[in-house]
Simulated assay, not measured.
Amino acid sequence: MVGDAATPMEAIREAIEARGPITFAEFMELALYGRGSFYATPPIGPRGDFVTSPHVHPVFGELVAAALRELRDGLGRPTPFRITEMGAGDGTLARSLLAAAADLPIAYTAIERSPGARTALSTIEGIGVRAELVPPVDVVLGNELLDNLPFRVLRGEREVRIGLRGEQLVEVLVPPEPGLLASPDADHERIAPVGAIALIDTLGRTLERGYALLIDYGGLGTTGGPLHGYRDQTIVQDLLADPGATDITAGVDFELIASYAGSLGLVAFPSVTQRDALLVLGLDRWMHGQLDGQHRSMDAGRGIEAVRTWSGRSRASLLIDPGGLGRLRWMLLATPGLAPPPWLARASARSADPVARS
């Protein structure tokens, strides 16, 4: 039985031996989320395999909190304000967000599939921890979640499946199943985001009146690049060599996801880059305030304090780097009848202004 396998490789081998070559999505499921898998314990953070925006600087959580305040206003300021973070990881975003919104009556739930992550999250005061999304909820938040959900891979007119040659995992090309929703990328392998589509299905069933803010790498009409892995803060190209030891990810085609969400009756507002979102939410003002504080520290002879301020401001600038975290996209979904928040309108206007983008 696959469920009895002690390692991802054993589970993958047993699945292939039982049914023949498996989809890339099933390979991902076993490698990332099965027993002994990559996400069995949180692999993120400065000492982990990769970092996300909340780990770069706490101001990210402060600005996300500002965005959520406007969503609460759009919902009529519900009390409690029920926020559910999916893929909460090690809880870094939860901590900074709750600290920044301590004045709000928030009921915060962290969702994680990994038992190890749930155990770690349960130590954070003021949050509930669950394995899956359940109603009621006002806002669902997902930061760098969609890109790690299992997906299928198409290459040309064939689907990539994973088989065995002796003890080695190999790719096997087969005719694709009809009806797979996939990005129309022509320059590299096409991604069929079956896990992300399943998540949108869940949101459609769960959100009675509310929003979902999904933040991730990707593009419009494209995933933005080939699939790849991460381990020890380094890109990994061979994803089959050591399943369970490497993250597996691909960018998100936000046009495809928005179209599918619309087919379920959700409203998908135009997505914006993280750079535009954070700047209109106040990062520029925060950076100028930090610079003023740095100058005051220097004038007062507090050199170490000035260096610390400079270091924090430098880290925070990475959040809007157009070649890095700044190119993440923020997509807001809503149930019918809800208006887009003011920050989204400002970010959309900024993205359309060539002067502001420069």
Results as ranks from 00 to 15, higher is better:
residue 253 D to C: 14
residue 264 L to S: 09
residue 339 A to Y: 01
residue 262 G to V: 05
residue 54 P to A: 09
residue 278 L to W: 03
residue 95 R to E: 05
residue 318 L to C: 10
residue 258 A to H: 10
residue 76 G to E: 05
residue 135 P to S: 11
residue 273 T to N: 02
residue 287 M to E: 15
residue 134 V to P: 01
residue 95 R to A: 04
residue 85 E to T: 01
residue 190 R to C: 13
residue 152 R to S: 07
residue 269 F to D: 02
residue 149 L to D: 03
residue 219 G to H: 07
residue 250 A to F: 13
residue 169 L to P: 02
residue 192 A to G: 12
residue 302 R to N: 11
residue 306 A to C: 12
residue 282 G to F: 11
residue 267 V to G: 01
residue 291 L to T: 15
residue 49 D to K: 06
residue 354 P to A: 02
residue 109 T to I: 04
residue 236 V to P: 07
residue 319 L to Q: 00
residue 145 L to S: 02
residue 165 R to M: 05
residue 9 M to R: 10
residue 180 L to V: 07
residue 343 W to F: 15
residue 194 V to K: 00
residue 199 L to I: 11
residue 247 D to W: 05
residue 357 R to S: 01
residue 62 E to L: 10
residue 222 T to C: 10
residue 187 D to F: 13
residue 147 D to F: 11
residue 83 I to H: 02
residue 186 A to E: 15
residue 22 I to L: 12
residue 324 G to A: 12
residue 63 L to C: 03
residue 42 P to N: 07
residue 190 R to P: 04
residue 251 G to E: 02
residue 69 R to Y: 08
residue 275 R to Q: 10
residue 169 L to V: 02
residue 50 F to Y: 07
residue 120 A to I: 14
residue 186 A to C: 11
residue 285 R to E: 08
residue 191 I to A: 09
residue 288 H to F: 12
residue 285 R to L: 14
residue 130 R to Q: 14
residue 77 R to Q: 05
residue 8 P to L: 04
residue 183 S to R: 02
residue 124 I to H: 08
residue 238 D to M: 13
residue 234 T to H: 14
residue 60 F to E: 01
residue 332 L to C: 09
residue 352 A to T: 00
residue 85 E to H: 02
residue 186 A to S: 15
residue 61 G to H: 00
residue 328 L to T: 05
residue 350 R to E: 00
residue 236 V to Q: 01
residue 123 T to R: 15
residue 221 G to D: 15
residue 255 E to N: 12
residue 216 D to K: 07
residue 233 Q to V: 06
residue 36 G to A: 03
residue 274 Q to A: 05
residue 151 F to I: 08
residue 296 R to H: 09
residue 351 S to G: 14
residue 308 R to H: 15
residue 213 L to D: 00
residue 17 E to G: 03
residue 4 D to M: 12
residue 332 L to R: 04
residue 275 R to H: 11
residue 65 A to R: 06
residue 168 Q to P: 00
residue 291 L to W: 13
residue 182 A to D: 04
residue 156 G to E: 01
residue 48 G to S: 09
residue 79 T to W: 10
residue 179 G to W: 09
residue 144 E to T: 02
residue 166 G to R: 01
residue 15 A to N: 05
residue 210 G to I: 11
residue 181 L to F: 12
residue 302 R to F: 14
residue 249 T to W: 01
residue 91 G to I: 12
residue 317 S to W: 10
residue 237 Q to D: 15
residue 205 R to P: 04
residue 99 A to H: 14
residue 247 D to Q: 14
residue 24 F to N: 11
residue 27 F to Q: 13
residue 324 G to Q: 03
residue 112 E to L: 06
residue 282 G to P: 08
residue 175 P to Y: 12
residue 101 A to E: 10
residue 217 Y to T: 10
residue 73 D to S: 05
residue 107 A to S: 05
residue 275 R to P: 03
residue 111 I to Q: 03
residue 277 A to E: 05
residue 184 P to Q: 03
residue 169 L to C: 07
residue 255 E to M: 06
